[in-house]
Design a protein around this nucleic acid. Structure first.
Length: 152
DNA sequence: GCCAACGTTGGC
DNA sequence: GCCAACGTTGGC
């Protein structure tokens, strides 16, 4: 079954424009167990993702990307020089995972968070829940399609 | 820069 | 296992 997700990234760190330039990327650096579980256990090849620019002014949904390969261990956890190095992660039983994604599209009208909050079709969306800090989270097909429509 | 909301850590 | 202290995220 087709799955839908929201991926958050700070554009200063990695933006949808970077994604378009690179065409594909390995989504690494996730160090939250809930997000890890989504990545490792639920994301499938072919799932579609809203690429969300967090800590932007204003924060906004920026485009769409697609998962092209299910989870594999995140190599940055074993690299002492990497930002997200995890000395406690055992290579025989990796703690952190990432997925391979491909660029799909950039919204001609980036969708500000405030507009998403005003749209009744997005009421109850996990991204809009108060206090939500997950960088990876599921969305429904309806939520995904609503945001794509708002961005087109 | 502020601060609410979480997640994590560590003493007990 | 509880919970206070601390760190981080991210909107505002």
């Amino acid at each position: 079954m087709q799955g839908y997700w929201v991926l958050k990234s700070e554009p200063d760190c990695y933006s949808i424009e970077d994604m378009r330039r690179d065409k594909t990327a390995f989504w690494d650096g996730v160090r939250n167990y809930q997000a890890r579980n989504f990545i490792r256990d639920e994301m499938k090849e072919g799932d579609l993702c809203i690429f969300f620019h967090s800590s932007a002014v204003p924060p906004h949904a920026a485009g769409v990307c697609k998962i092209i390969k299910a989870a594999s261990p995140d190599p940055t956890q074993f690299d002492p020089a990497a930002d997200h190095f995890d000395a406690d992660s055992d290579p025989a039983h990796p703690r952190w995972y990432g997925v391979d994604i491909a660029f799909e599209s950039i919204f001609s009208h980036p969708v500000p968070l405030s507009e998403m909050k005003e749209n009744p079709a997005l009421r109850g969306m996990q991204l809009l829940a108060r206090g939500n800090r997950l960088s990876v989270m599921p969305a429904s097909r309806g939520e995904f399609e609503t945001i794509v429509k708002m961005g087109s």
